[in-house]
């Protein structure tokens, strides 16, 4: 059977939520906080992005405001999966909220190793997977196929990629949902140096609404998460077809 014939859509792991609200990866660390500055109760907690090996911060890390939002470039520093589990697995097991572990993988082997490590862990109810920028669709599908197993897989893509045709193959491959998150962009520093990174801010909401409308055709539950700063924003996304919403930098502002 070729990869294109691989159809496990009937075996798709179902996600369940008691509330459509959750944090976006990278906003609240590795374990649920005691206090959430969100307009409604959370239905799940998503960890910061985790790689197989430890990642150092980016050399040119920066926060650059622009009208309507800001750019964040951090390099996704994290201690690596083994260290994260050592420090947080016990707390995940005791969490009242379902834990969705956000994984970053460079290739299928890394993702498979990380997902298998998480299967069966108490408290871990899903994995959310983000892929390297510019990864070709075929390669992305291979990586995601490696993640398929006992845990529901949420495929995380920037809102600017919601129309990519390879997303149409995710349902057949047993993926549980698509999450649409902060897009990438470039902002110049005061000294004229261009910095690329993720964009956050209320100005993104119209793009997220358009992304939801575009991605509905892929036949998977959509989790929309960029530009959400109020309950009204979230309702608009739900009206547009989003199954759930992720809140990002609002959590930092309202701390």
């Amino acid at each position: 059977m070729s990869a294109d014939d691989f159809d496990v859509s009937m075996l798709r792991q179902e996600l369940t939520l008691t509330s459509p609200w959750m944090n976006a990866a990278g906003m609240l660390g590795f374990t649920p906080p005691n206090h959430w500055a969100m307009p409604a109760a959370a239905g799940a907690f998503i960890t910061d992005p985790i790689s197989l090996a430890a990642r150092a911060p980016a050399v040119s890390r920066a926060v650059l405001p622009y009208p309507g939002g800001f750019l964040l470039h951090s390099g996704f520093p994290n201690p690596g999966l083994r260290a994260v589990l050592k420090q947080y697995a016990a707390r995940w097991a005791q969490s009242e909220l379902p834990i969705w572990v956000h994984l970053m993988g460079q290739n299928a082997a890394e993702i498979e190793q990380m997902v298998r490590r998480l299967e069966g862990m108490e408290g871990v109810m899903a994995v959310e997977i983000s892929l390297p920028p510019e990864m070709p669709g075929n390669e992305a599908l291979n990586v995601l196929q490696a993640a398929y197993g006992e845990l529901p897989v949420v495929v995380n893509v920037p809102i600017t990629e919601a129309g990519q045709s390879w997303l149409g193959k995710l349902a057949k491959r047993g993926m549980a949902a698509i999450s649409l998150s902060a897009p990438r962009g470039t902002v110049y520093t005061d000294t004229g140096r261009p910095v690329s990174g993720r964009l956050f801010g209320p100005s993104l909401l119209p793009l997220t609404l358009a992304a939801v409308q575009s991605a509905r055709r892929w036949g998977l539950p959509l989790i929309a998460g960029a530009g959400v700063y109020s309950a009204q924003d979230a309702q608009q996304l739900r009206d547009a077809g989003a199954w759930a919403v992720q809140v990002d930098s609002l959590l930092w502002r309202n701390g």
């Binding site: 890390r61 951090s74 520093p77």
Partner: peptide, 22 residues
């Protein structure tokens, strides 16, 4: 150094290199 998340997210933008690590 910018501290946008104030430890809410451990975002790492404010990382400082020390002899004891980051």
């Amino acid at each position: 150094v910018p501290m946008p998340c104030a430890h809410n997210g451990e975002c790492g933008v404010c990382s400082v290199s020390t002899r004891a690590g980051w």
